[in-house]
Each structure stands twice: as structure tokens, then as C-alpha cells.
């Protein structure tokens, strides 16, 4: 697996898109710090960008890479290499290079600005960790979609729909159900609904760590009680891991039975 990972990774870090992605974050980091002049505020703005952009880029990058490396995959399938290693290696190569772009692109400006001297270092690391998780999750979801759809156009469509659902539609449905069922106690429902969408989960996790939950009113207090504790943090991280591992398992399972 590590050889496949190595080749996929080298292939990707030589590609122009990885640099564009990296430079985008680098620029974003510098501009935000320059405009806000404050690490904590920059983190809040960054969160809003990351929570939407990381899933989008990961999904599209993942699906494009999978379809584009069809030849590479077929070549590897005839070699003495395990099927699961081929797909896991490629997946980790894509997710790894995207994560590297994110961490370096944002890390460099913040470190230069004096991150290590500020007390926002924990918040910033949490931001990067959730960003990394979102990359891992949405890349593997994209790989799953690509594996199940031979038709590129269809696969691409499903992938974009998935992102749209998770990033936009889910929140809309969530909000609507809150309005419709407002007579009922909704604390545990909203907690549950938040946990089942990795994007919402990451957003809530960061918001509450940033101590601006007072803005969220009563529900915010319930959330704070849950996410603010160590237990809440563990449950959230566990859910993010679950969101990563389950699709990876499916990827391995489905790839074992596929014909090429």
C-alpha cells in the first residue's frame, strides 16, 4: 500500500492543482490576518471558509482523481498488489496531499504572525484537525461514489449533490424541522441532527470552543454543555472518525467485488 501511496502522492504534489489549492490557503491566511489583525477573529472567518470549501474541494478532487487514474488503476490491478492496497493507497495519496496543502497553506501565515505566542493555538489546531477530517471524509465519500458509478457525468453529479446536501440542504431541512416542531423539546433532536452531518458537527465543535456560544441562546447552552466538555469533544472526534472509517470500509468491500 505504501508504494501506491507514494506514487499517488508524488503524482499529486507535482500537479498544478495542489499548488493552486496551497497558494489559495496561503493567500487567504495572510489576507485574513492582515485585515483582522487578530488571530481569534481570523480563525472564526477561516472556519466559515473551511467548513464549506474543504468538503467541496475534497469531493471534486477525489472524484476527478479517481476517474483520471483509471488507467493507473488498471495497470496496478495486473500487478502483484492487493486490491485494497491499490484503492487505499490512492485515497490516502489524494487526502494526504489535500491535507498537506491545507495545513501548510494556513499554518505558514499563522505561525509567521505569532501563533505560538497567542492563546488561540488550541483553537487553531482544532480548526486544522477538523479541516483534515473533513478532507478525509469527503475524499472517501467521493471515491465511493466514483467506484459505484462507471458513468463519469453521473458520478460527478452525485458528488456535487452530496456536497450541496451536506453543506446547504441539510441545514435547511434541519431549520425547517425546528420551526415545524417548535412546540416540542428539540434539544436532543438538534444535538443528534448536528452529529449526523460532519459539516455541522465540525462547525458546532469549533464555534463552541471559540466561546461565542452565548450568542446561540438556550440551545447554545445545551450544546455548550455537551460539546464544551471533554466528553463532548471525544464524542465529536469519535463521530468524525466514524464518518471516515465507515466509507473506507465500504470502499475496500466494494472494490473487492468489482470487475475491471
Amino acid at each position: 500500500m505504501f508504494k501506491i501511496l507514494k506514487y499517488s502522492f508524488y503524482d499529486l504534489i507535482r500537479s498544478r492543482w495542489s499548488y493552486v489549492y496551497f497558494l489559495f490557503y496561503l493567500l487567504l491566511g495572510f489576507v485574513l490576518l492582515f485585515l483582522n489583525n487578530d488571530v481569534s477573529k481570523a480563525i472564526i472567518t477561516l472556519m466559515n471558509v473551511i467548513i464549506i470549501l474543504v468538503p467541496l474541494i475534497s469531493t471534486i478532487f477525489g472524484i476527478m482523481y479517481f476517474y483520471n487514474s483509471k488507467e493507473f488503476t488498471e495497470l496496478l490491478l495486473a500487478q502483484p498488489v492487493k486490491r485494497s492496497s491499490i484503492f487505499l493507497g490512492q485515497y490516502l495519496g489524494v487526502a494526504g496531499s489535500l491535507t498537506l496543502s491545507l495545513v501548510l497553506g494556513l499554518g505558514i501565515p499563522f505561525v509567521l504572525y505569532g501563533l505560538f505566542k497567542s492563546d488561540a493555538i488550541f483553537d487553531f489546531s482544532l480548526l486544522l484537525v477538523t479541516g483534515a477530517f473533513l478532507t478525509l471524509i469527503f475524499t472517501v465519500l467521493a471515491f465511493n461514489i466514483a467506484l459505484s458509478n462507471e458513468n463519469k457525468i453521473k458520478g460527478f453529479g452525485y458528488a456535487v449533490l452530496l456536497w450541496l446536501f451536506m453543506a446547504v440542504i441539510y441545514d435547511g431541512l434541519f431549520l425547517m424541522s425546528l420551526i415545524i416542531f417548535k412546540q416540542y423539546p428539540l434539544d436532543s433532536f438538534s444535538l443528534g441532527a448536528t452529529i449526523f452531518n460532519p459539516i455541522d458537527l465540525s462547525r458546532t465543535l469549533i464555534l463552541l470552543k471559540l466561546d461565542i456560544s452565548a450568542l446561540l441562546g438556550y440551545t447554545g447552552a445545551v450544546f455548550k454543555k455537551f460539546f464544551g466538555t471533554d466528553q463532548g469533544l471525544f464524542v465529536s472526534i469519535f463521530m468524525l472518525i466514524f464518518w471516515t472509517v465507515l466509507p473506507i470500509w465500504r470502499l475496500v468491500f466494494v472494490s473487492r467485488k468489482k470487475d475491471f
Binding site: D11, R14, S15, S69, K70, E71, F72, E74, L75, A78, Q79, P80, V81, K82, R83
Partner: peptide
């Protein structure tokens, strides 16, 4: 089993290779 493929050399019908290598 996948190790047996070490004993096989294969020439595919359509020479599809990763283009950027």
C-alpha cells in the same frame, strides 16, 4: 490471493497508461 500475479506478465489490449508519467 494476489501474489500469484508475480508469476504472470500481462500485456493489456489497450495500452492505457497514466498520462502524466
Amino acid at each position: 490471493n494476489f501474489k500469484y500475479r508475480k508469476k504472470i506478465d500481462y500485456l493489456p489490449q489497450i495500452a492505457n497508461f497514466p498520462g502524466n508519467l
